[in-house]
Design a protein around this nucleic acid. Structure first.
Length: 260
DNA sequence: AACTGACTCAACCGCGTATTT
DNA sequence: GAAATACGCGGTTGAGTCAGT
């Protein structure tokens, strides 16, 4: 007799897995991921489930490219906080730390390349009196200059260029946790002020939404922004979904509740 | 059409912190 | 208070896609 020990699944998630995960998050809330992983019958770690939920399945997520506004915000916040992606992500409703991290990597790669090019040009045109050897904010999106390159994380101090932080805001650059009141030191410095207002406004909206949707037993948020309606509303005639639920360890129990 | 390099995105890993037992 | 467990974060990797040659 050979007992088959099921390996924990890795790699890309299938639609079925997504569906299953959503169902169980719906039941148990966005917590106890190990429990959800076990109970759902997904051969995934809790960690993996959480990640999938946070980065992909969460109904509040925005899809698509970052807007210019968001890009600027990321640059600005990164210059203040460094690689504190989750914190930065909190300022960009609907965006995940992973997404921002990925964006930043790309951005920095571009920057590094630009820098390289600039340096090369400068070497070639050494006699030119333009002295561009400081990284010039050549691209429209780079009104902020960065000291960091691809390989070095910007030290939190890298508050350079137009940000013009006030002296007391250096603490922010040095990674001291001041969490959500961080922008107080910024006002009046430069047009970012307007941006902060917008952020706060959007956060207020988000918080309201959260009060409604994040209660463990009131899981399904009002309207997913993207096409997972099918997951969130399992109809009586959705046999596939039913099967999936029922085939999970606790499926029978909860399936009855869900589908009754 | 085939190849190559850049880019994007999803996912995993390791580690530190928080919470529970 | 200590140990175990769960959670969250940041770093990294690899597959897929797209544009240029």
């Amino acid at each position: 007799m050979v007992t088959v020990k099921e390996e924990t699944r890795k790699g890309p998630w299938t639609e079925q897995e997504d569906l299953q995960l959503v169902c169980f998050v719906r039941l148990f809330g966005e917590r106890r991921w190990d429990f959800i992983a076990k109970v759902s019958g997904l051969n995934r770690t809790g960690k993996s489930c959480r990640l999938r939920w946070v980065n992909y399945l969460h109904p509040g997520l925005k899809r698509g490219r970052l807007t210019q506004h968001e890009e600027r915000l990321i640059l600005e916040l990164h210059s203040r906080w460094g690689n504190r992606w989750s914190r930065i992500a909190r300022r960009l409703p609907g965006r995940t730390d992973n997404e921002i991290k990925n964006y930043w990597r790309t951005h920095m790669r571009k920057k590094a390349q630009e820098k390289k090019r600039n340096n090369n040009n400068n070497n070639n045109n050494n006699n030119n009196n333009n002295n561009n050897n400081k990284l010039s904010p050549s691209s429209p999106s780079s009104s902020i200059t960065y000291q960091s390159s691809l390989n070095e994380d910007p030290p939190p101090k890298a508050c350079t260029g137009v940000e013009k932080l006030e002296p007391n805001s250096l603490s922010r650059c040095s990674g001291i946790d001041d969490d959500d009141h961080d922008h107080d030191g910024m006002h009046g410095c430069y047009p970012m002020e307007q941006i902060w207002k917008e952020i706060e406004a959007s956060e207020a909206v988000r918080d309201d939404a959260c009060n409604i949707s994040c209660h463990p037993m009131m899981m399904p948020p009002p309207t997913p922004l993207w096409d997972y309606n099918s997951i969130w509303s399992i109809n009586d005639d959705d046999d596939e979904s039913k099967n999936m639920l029922f085939s999970s360890p606790l499926g029978e129990v909860f399936g009855v509740k869900l589908l009754s």
